[in-house]
Write a protein that binds this DNA or RNA. Structure first.
Length: 636
RNA sequence: GCCUCUGUGGCUUAGCGGUAUAGCGGCUGAUUCGUAAUCAGCAGGUCGGGGGUUCAAAUCCCCCCGGAGGCUCCA
């Protein structure tokens, strides 16, 4: 218990916003004021939980004592989290605060500010020698708790701790795991030749930030007419223009197709859920995200931040045999909602509404889970590669408990071997989260910031929480182990990755381009003058891909420049020569340098074959805009 | 959420106490053109929103909204 006591002329507060742990309060409780009051700011700590009664009585005694010395008759009990880095559960805190209030109220005029709300307060401190005092009260027989001590306690208690809090109290041991199987301390690892990993490690551990400029993808997403901010919505909710919608749709379909290939069943589940549903309520506390909450009649609902709920609730009602395992389900969540803090939102990197493939695999046991984990690890590599994000473009983080490491060294080393480079390891002594093993592929952007794309987690908690079981060969019901997998990570984040990657390539003197299968225009036909339009139409018809025609009344130079600004992979300029020979002149962007365009003469059929070979196996959709550029509106 | 910076026609932007610059884009006309921007004219702005100071505000002050950076991530 941390106590800060201030003898004041007055203290007053009024509540602003509720936090997820806010206690329910009546209207009269929303603001309060006491004159000539002793204000007791307090934070109930983790270590207090094992000795609640002792803490209450000693706190009461301390306040009583000080109040007596300064001759205060009024006491304001004010919950103040910032006094301690190791907070107790909200439940405990509220009960302690209420008890303290009750104990004191016999002899004093006591008021209590509500717990779990953002509050504005004004205080006028008297400034005499006894007017400001702080006290730290720790249960007898205990030294001040260190992170580790706290962690050990956290393990014992049942589900009261929340993931967000766990993250701050969990003691992490950071290492680098090499493909040779060495587990090195960060300081002992030579990062030469692994500069990107260095950036990632800096970002992840020391939270070093080097930059002050806006991320380059923000300008690109707008200039390429992919996506834009929508001030008419909440921050972090974007609008997608036709080209952006096309790209998203192709990516979404691709990831779904890949999931079908590994046997996943696509489902669709609701966007909003009842806040009071027992399993969900409980799970909310275990997931480090903030929710959007909405009210519908009398019910309080929250918007999903992933597809877990929907699928788990479905799994709960299913009859599942061991013969069905591993059983996979996927949903392309459009959208997943997370009410990230405003300062954390940036372009397409961090959003409040985003599209995420969320796949869950029910596994018989840990052995099968680990096997699946490995398969999905490889699947994720392949998915990102086809999206256009290579192994070289991301860094791997693997997180697990010490026990898991000791029992699965070879398996974990294999993960590093697979990507042929060292990976970052975060190890915990005990498990704080719902998962026991997790990996992420982290894209490191032009500003050395890292964000997670693909991820797989082995979940050992939720089968129990949602009462999901399968019938084993011996006829008994058993809990499956559940894998969470997002093969690509958020779709918007893939686009962010691609744009940031191209921004980096541009800086390195290369020509930026999107993968052909994702390019909104794959071939741009530019007739030199009106009289070549018929021929242009004919050529366009022969091409079996997203072809458009720049029929505007501009000079060839200008049209070529614009095609370049749009990153069009193949540009075909048509004039008298081509009409005569029937062959076409193609500028191949992927093989061009900024000062040296690569131009090749070929037939329409040859270009067709080329496009086909570069896009085989990938989803296709037609042009998202009018074929003739003169018929297209401008989005900005 | 906090701190700092920022917000001028669709876009980029000048002006920073005397009611507004220019380029791109759009429209009209001329030009029919061989690979990074053809020429001319026209239209378009209650300077993010609201309040205040002043004879006078895009310019100074306050509040709100959006954006960027940093910090922070439940009482």
């Amino acid at each position: 218990m941390q106590l800060l006591l201030i003898h004041s002329d007055y203290i007053e507060y009024d509540v602003k916003k509720s936090t997820p742990v806010a206690e329910k309060i009546e209207e009269s409780f929303r603001s309060g004021r006491l004159d000539e009051a002793l204000a007791a700011f307090m934070a109930v700590e983790k270590g207090d939980e094992s000795a609640v009664d002792e803490i209450i009585s000693r706190t009461v005694a301390e306040i009583r004592n000080v109040a007596g010395q300064v001759k205060a008759e009024n006491i304001m009990i004010y919950p103040y989290a910032h006094l301690s880095p190791n907070l107790s559960s909200p439940k405990t805190a509220v009960s302690v605060l209420k008890s303290v209030e009750k104990e004191l109220s016999g002899d004093f005029n006591v008021k209590r500010a509500p717990f779990g709300w953002y509050k504005a307060f004004r205080i006028s401190c008297k400034g005499h020698p006894l007017s400001e005092l702080s006290r730290s009260i720790v249960p007898e027989g205990k030294s001040i708790s260190s992170g580790e001590a706290v962690a050990a306690e956290g393990e014992k208690e049942e589900l009261v701790s929340e993931a967000l809090k766990a993250e701050s109290t969990a003691r992490s041991y950071w290492h680098i795991l090499t493909p040779e199987g060495e587990l090195l301390n960060i300081d002992d690892f030579d990062f030469t030749g692994h500069e990107n990993l260095q950036k990632f490690v800096n970002y992840e551990i020391s939270k070093q930030r080097a930059v002050e400029r806006a991320p380059p993808h923000v300008e690109l997403m707008r200039r390429l007419e992919i996506a834009d901010y929508e001030p008419g919505s909440d921050s972090g909710n974007m609008r997608y223009y036709p080209k952006g919608r096309l790209i998203k749709s192709l990516l979404e379909n691709y990831v779904l197709e890949e999931s079908y290939k590994v046997g996943a069943m696509e489902v669709e589940t609701p966007l909003m859920y009842d806040m009071e549903h027992p399993s969900l309520k409980n799970y909310l506390d275990r997931f480090p995200a903030r929710q959007y909450s909405i009210e519908s009649d009398k019910r309080k609902m929250f918007l999903r931040f992933a597809a877990c709920f929907g699928q788990f609730l479905m799994n709960h009602d299913m009859t599942i045999s061991y013969k069905n395992l591993p059983m996979k389900m996927i949903e392309m969540t459009r959208y997943s909602f997370r009410r990230e803090q405003r300062g954390e939102l940036v372009g397409l990197r961090r959003l409040r509404a985003f599209t995420m493939p969320d796949m869950h695999s029910l596994c018989k046991d840990m052995e099968q889970a680990v096997e699946q984990f490995n398969e999905q690890y490889n699947m994720c590599i392949s998915v990102l590669d086809n999206v256009g994000i290579r192994v070289d473009d991301f860094e791997v983080a693997v997180r697990f408990t010490r026990d898991f490491y000791n029992e699965n060294k070879d398996f974990l080393t294999n993960l590093a071997k697979t990507v042929k480079k060292p990976v970052l390891v975060e190890m915990w002594d005990t498990r704080f989260f719902y998962f026991i093993l997790k990996f992420e592929f982290n894209f490191v952007d032009a500003l050395a910031k890292a964000s997670a794309l693909s991820t797989v987690q082995i979940d050992v908690e939720n089968a129990e929480r949602y009462d999901i079981s399968y019938i084993d060969i011996d006829g008994t019901a058993k809990r499956p182990v559940i894998l969470h997998c997002s093969p690509s990570g958020a779709i918007e984040r893939c686009i962010y990755g691609l744009l940031e990657k191209e921004a980096m390539r541009t800086e390195a003197g290369e020509v930026p381009i999107l993968p052909l299968w994702l390019s909104p225009t794959q071939v741009r036909v530019i007739p030199i003058s009106d009289k070549h339009m018929d021929f242009a139409m004919k050529v366009a018809e022969q091409l079996d891909c997203r072809v458009d025609i720049d029929d505007r009344e501009d000079t060839v130079g200008k049209k070529v420049r614009e095609a370049g600004r749009e990153w069009v992979p193949y540009v075909v300029v048509l004039g008298d020569r081509e009409v005569e020979t029937g062959r076409i002149n193609v500028t191949i962007r992927s093989e061009s340098r900024p000062d040296r365009p690569k131009k090749v003469e070929m037939t329409a059929e040859e270009l067709n074959a080329r496009v086909r070979s570069e896009t085989t196996g990938m989803p296709y959709r037609g042009l998202p805009l009018a074929k003739l550029l003169s018929a297209r509106p401008k989005f900005l």
